[in-house]
Every structure is written in structure tokens, then in C-alpha cells.
Design a protein around this nucleic acid. Structure first.
Lengths: 330, 330
DNA sequence: TTGTATGCGTTATCAT
DNA sequence: ATGATAACGCATACAA
């Protein structure tokens, strides 16, 4: 049996509401009573029940963090600063998985155990954010966006980032380009591709269909795709990868085939996760500031919790090329 | 205002407890009433309040996952299967950070919002597990252990794993060994070192103090340490690293200095995280089955929740050498 | 089979 | 300044 405020009240010789007042630091309690209550609470190792408090206040100070597979090195880079900011704001992070083969049910996010939800793996046509908005669950999309959704969103300018890579490869003199794009069902995959293609067009550089692959944001997908490209009679001199994890798969493919990076192959990623700077990769990539993204996401979420009626915001983070050692002029 | 079971009851023309019975699938409800209640619930998009339920049942079906930095690639490998098993068992995972500069307070884990806790980053002398046990919070140590603690624990046989590495290096003919051990404040760091040293002694191979470094389980620590070792007049021909992440730091150091792996330097890690098999690393290491660990941890935790009085269990997982391409004979 | 009454542990309103 | 009382949304013992 856990200790309750009643037990503390009994021991301190006061009423239960007085205990509540003292432990909340509410004003209007005599210093002497306060001291008596506090010492009783300490003696009993009393900790107020979060459940009781939640029921009374209708707030749980808990936020759902919906993510796919955390072993994919991209997600911790986003989840970690999110959890950090949330804890700083007095909230706690509940990790909810959302697998393709086992998607979250909206019910589990709308059961009143969460004050809000951050979605990090939303697919373009997903019904989940709409469902949450409909049910009045405060909700912010991080990193991904869904068209026509009246919900707060924070994304990197993926089109611009893609265009920056195209510009880099063009200026390095590459003309035989390869690409491993992300899933078309994700705004990140789609937008990076669109920006890359458009800018390539402006530079008058073709992107041959046989040098284009598409796959999930995983190492293995990048490895397989670039393995194929490197086996072609006329392989590309540079590949743009959907993100850093895919680019690391490209590095793996190159390593397995004895292809030197960047001498024989230029590899460019996207995101600038911490591992991209490891010497084994030295990955040239596009930086999207995920810490800033976490800041914005948490700010918007708290604002929405405070005022559910506020207009939806869309924050766009400027991307920046990070040039390391995985690129070279032809 | 959220929908409550009262609203559903009113709409279905039954009492509130009947709604509760139907939605829990409790027996003894007329099929016709059940249908009426369910259709009312559906019409109102009713979802039972987890908070109300928790208060009534004194169970939250929520487990705290205490971890340090998830961007350290080791932790997701443990956290992900844990969360997976927990969700399969009908529990949800609350992510709680426990930083050296900002440790968790036991109060936050004992506020009744959690049915149990999994500790993954416990240091040898930490008071936290003792405190939790004292307060009756069901609690399991995963991956790390603390001496003299009457709590359920699951660890890899780190001493044996360290010994296996020593045996491997001995059989490859290495006599000038280096090591980057983990913090002595962790059982993993301490035990791997002890097992390695002991077995080395049995093989009659010395471990010179000037070729030993110690640091946290991070890439950067491994990179710095091995960078130093490689700069020595007589560098080691092989290094045993505290874990895979440290070993990847070693790979980075080698890459930065143009030292070839495994031709010029043998690197062996510990854990066999997914990245270890990436071609850029091809890391030879010791496998500790973290999926199995998650199974055992969740099993023990649920057993303790069901029966707080049961004796503490200690499960030890057998390590196994995984030989890839980062080792070589001298 | 169903309804009534009560309790879970807190906060909050209203007296005193 | 403090106590009595009533929610909060559910589950459960008991009555009918």
C-alpha cells in the first residue's frame, strides 16, 4: 500500500487538503503547519500520486513520442533533443512505436494518458494526424509533413537542401549522377528528390532513370542500391542519398567493392547526424538542425496545449551544406 | 470536454458500470445490451480514460525505461527490444533520462505513474536501485549490475566475453596488446577488463600499462584513446575495446592516421550491435544477445509486479565471438 | 443480468 | 489559515 496524503495528514495532525496545499507550495499556509507537514511527508517518504493528480487536474504532463525504429540512427538524433526539451519543460516522454506492420491506434494516443503527441514518422497520406486533430489531441508533426493538415509542423527545407546538393555536384563537374531516393510516401523523401531534380534541370544535368534507386531510410537499402549502381557498365561518379544512414550504406557498398570514396565515387547524404562526422565516413551532407527542430516542436506543442484554438504554425528550418571528405571533383 | 463512460451510459440507456463491464469484456452482460453499449461508444468515439482506470485498478500498465543518451548507438539496441516486448505484453514505455550531470530522482519513478522500472545505465555504487527496492517499486537491472543488490538482473557474462577476446588475440599471435577499457564505475567496463586481464595472464601475455586507456563508452573516447596508442613509438598490433561504439572510434582513429585494419591493427569490440556488421567496420566482436536480454528482463519485471515477494533472479547470457574482418594474425 | 453505492488519491471550492 | 465536501473517470462489491 502506497503512502497517501491522508497518511501524511494524520501524522501531521492536519486535514488532507492542507497536505495538498503544502506539497504544491500553495500560498496561505502557516509556516509552522507547513514545517509539520513537510517533516511528516519526509518521514513517510511520501510522493504524491501522479495518477490522482492527473485525474483532478486533467493533465498528465506526459507527451507521446511516436517513432518507428530507434535502432535506425536517425531517430535518436531527433528523439533525444525532444525528450530533453520536454523534460526541461516538466513533461515526460512516452515512447510509442509506429511500425508499418503494426501502426499505432489513435485510441491509444487519445485515452487521456497524454497531454499531447509528437509524430516523427508520419507518412504522406496517414490518417493518424487528422484523427488526432479531430479528437482534439494536441499534436505536432516533426521532420515529416502531411499535406492539407491543419496541424503544427516543423520541417527542414528539404527541397532547398536537395537543390543545394545538386548545385554542389554540378560545381564539382559531375555529369553522371546516381541517386538513392527515399520512399515517395514520406515528405522528406519526396521533397528532397523534387528539389534535387529541379535544380539538376536548371544546371542542365540529366538524371538517368537507370542510375536512380528508391528505398527506405536504412543502411541496408543504401548498400543494396549503390551496390547495384556500382555494378553497372557505366557507374555514376557521384550519388545523392536520401539521408545519412542511406549514405552510410553507400559507403558500405563502396568498401565492399573496393571503390574509393571520394576518389572513385562522391557520396552526399542528408541530415548531418553525429555519425556523419566520424572519420570512417567523413560524410559530406546537408545539415538540418534537429536540436532547433526539437525546440520549435516543443514550443508549438506547449502553445497548443495552452491554447487549443490557436492557428496552426509551420516552421521551416534552413538547410546548410556540410562539406567533409566524401565529395570530390571529377 | 472528453467523453466519459457516463455519456456512453446515458446514450445507451444503461448504467455507468454496465458500460465499464462491456468495454472490459467482462462476462455477464446480455448480448443485446452489449451491442447497444458498443454502438453508443463507437458513435461517441469513446475511449476509456487511462487515468481513471489507473486510479481504480492501481495499475498504470506503464514501465519506466531509464537510459542515458540514446544517440549512443548501443542504447537503442537494448531499448528497442525492451519497448517491443513491453508493448507486446500490453505495457507502454516511458523514457526517462539519467545523465551524469542530471541524475533521475527516485521520487519521479516512485510517484505511482509506473508499474515498474528497467534500469539500463546503473553505475556500480548507485543508490537508485536500492532506493527503488526500498520503496517497493518493481525494478530490474538490464545490462549492468550492482553488487549486493537484491534485485532482478540480466547481464551478459562479461568476464567470459573478455576472456574470449584474450584467447582470440593470443591465438592470432598478438603479443603487443592495447586496450581501451570502459569506466570502472560500470560493471560492464569492470568485468570485461577483469576477464580480459585474467585470461591474458593465463596465456602468459603481458598487458603493458602504457598501452591501456580508459574512457566512457563513446566513439570519441575510442578515437582519442586509439589515436594516442597509434602515436606511440611502439604501437600495439591489436586493441580490445570496451564495446563496439568505442571500437568504431578506434576505426576512426585508424582511418584518420592511415593505419590499415586489420593489416596494421586488429580491432575487437564487444556487444555486436547492428552497425558492427556494416562493411565499413566489419567489426570482430563479442555477441551479447540483447533481444534475449530484453525477453528476460521483461519476464522478470512482470513476474515481480505479479509477485513482489519473489526471490531476486540473476540471468546471465552467454557471450559468443563473432569473427568478421577487423582481426588478423600478426 | 443490471443498477446502486463506494473508493481510488488528488485538486479545488467553499465555508468557517 | 484551515477544514469539510465535492468532483475527476473509472472499477468493483454488493444488492436487487
Amino acid at each position: 500500500m502506497a503512502i497517501t496524503s491522508r497518511d501524511v495528514a494524520r501524522m501531521a495532525g492536519v486535514s488532507q487538503p492542507t497536505v495538498s496545499r503544502v506539497l504544491r507550495g500553495a500560498p496561505g499556509v502557516a509556516p509552522e503547519t507547513r514545517a509539520r507537514v513537510l517533516s511528516a511527508a519526509r518521514a513517510l517518504s511520501y510522493v504524491p500520486s501522479e495518477t490522482g493528480r492527473s485525474l483532478a487536474t486533467r493533465a498528465t504532463r506526459r507527451i507521446g513520442l511516436v517513432a518507428d525504429d530507434l535502432t535506425n540512427p536517425f531517430y535518436p538524433e531527433l528523439v533525444e533533443p525532444l525528450r530533453d526539451r520536454l523534460e526541461q519543460a516538466g513533461y515526460r516522454a512516452l515512447l510509442v512505436s509506429d511500425r508499418v506492420d503494426d501502426p499505432v491506434e489513435a485510441d491509444r494516443l487519445a485515452d487521456g494518458s497524454l497531454d499531447g503527441v509528437v509524430l516523427t514518422t508520419t507518412e504522406v497520406g496517414s490518417a493518424l494526424p487528422h484523427e488526432l486533430v479531430r479528437r482534439g489531441v494536441p499534436c505536432v508533426l516533426a521532420n515529416r509533413e502531411a499535406a492539407g493538415l491543419p496541424a503544427d509542423t516543423c520541417v527542414v527545407d528539404n527541397q532547398l537542401g536537395g537543390a543545394q546538393v545538386a548545385g554542389l555536384l554540378a560545381s564539382l563537374g559531375h555529369r553522371r549522377l546516381g541517386a538513392v531516393f527515399g520512399p515517395a510516401s514520406t515528405s522528406t523523401g519526396r521533397d528532397r528528390e523534387a528539389g534535387f531534380r529541379a535544380a539538376l534541370g536548371e544546371h542542365g544535368i540529366p538524371l538517368r532513370a537507370e542510375l536512380v534507386r528508391r528505398g527506405p531510410f536504412t543502411h541496408d537499402a543504401g548498400r543494396a542500391a549503390v551496390g547495384e549502381l556500382l555494378g553497372l557498365p557505366a557507374p555514376p561518379t557521384a550519388v545523392f542519398c536520401a539521408n545519412d544512414v542511406v549514405a552510410m550504406g553507400a559507403c558500405s557498398a563502396a568498401a565492399a567493392l573496393g571503390v574509393r570514396v571520394p576518389d572513385d565515387l562522391t557520396i552526399v547524404g542528408f541530415d548531418d547526424i553525429a555519425m556523419a562526422s566520424w572519420d570512417v565516413f567523413g560524410l559530406s551532407t546537408v545539415r538540418g538542425d534537429l536540436t532547433l527542430m526539437a525546440d520549435e516542436v516543443v514550443r508549438m506543442l506547449l502553445a497548443r496545449i495552452a491554447d487549443p484554438g490557436r492557428p496552426a504554425e509551420r516552421v521551416v528550418i534552413a538547410p546548410a551544406l556540410v562539406l567533409r571528405r566524401s565529395h570530390n571533383a571529377v
